[in-house]
Amino acid sequence: MTTATTRTTSTASTASTAGTASTAPSARAADDADHAHAAAAAPHPRVEVHDAQGWFALCGLDALTPGRGVAALLRDGTQAAVFLDRAGRPYVIGNRDPFTGACVLSRGLLGSAHGAPFVASPLLKQRFDLRTGSCLDEEGVCVPVFRSRIR
């Protein structure tokens, strides 16, 4: 299940995660560092995902727009779609749309139905539950789900 952790200002954990993830987005890391430096107490949280090798930082939280997604590369070379909902919770699922084979789920629109957050594929509009990866419009179809958190 997806874990939504509360934001933390611990720069130590971010640094250690970034270290694990070898060359995590350097440009953005530098931006964030500058920003943190300029406003000493300001947090610069990151979105982390849990893959086979453990937690790893994908991007700064400020790279995400609530209600939208971005594509990200995982360490094994597969693609993930990273979303942020209105409440600030992150979700990470596979980016590949199983109906068309195209890696586009990150470009779909976020929604919620009966409390369940979902993304609608931008190609043929099938919806996938962001917590379980299962398709809401066709039984038996699902996409990978990754644990994620904000640190």
Partner: peptide, 19 residues
């Protein structure tokens, strides 16, 4: 299909260097 618990993947699409 991977769940968060048993996440693993088909590796190594061209161009997808480890970051």
């Amino acid at each position: 299909v991977r769940t968060a618990e048993d996440a693993h993947g088909t590796a190594g699409l061209e161009g997808a260097t480890a970051r």
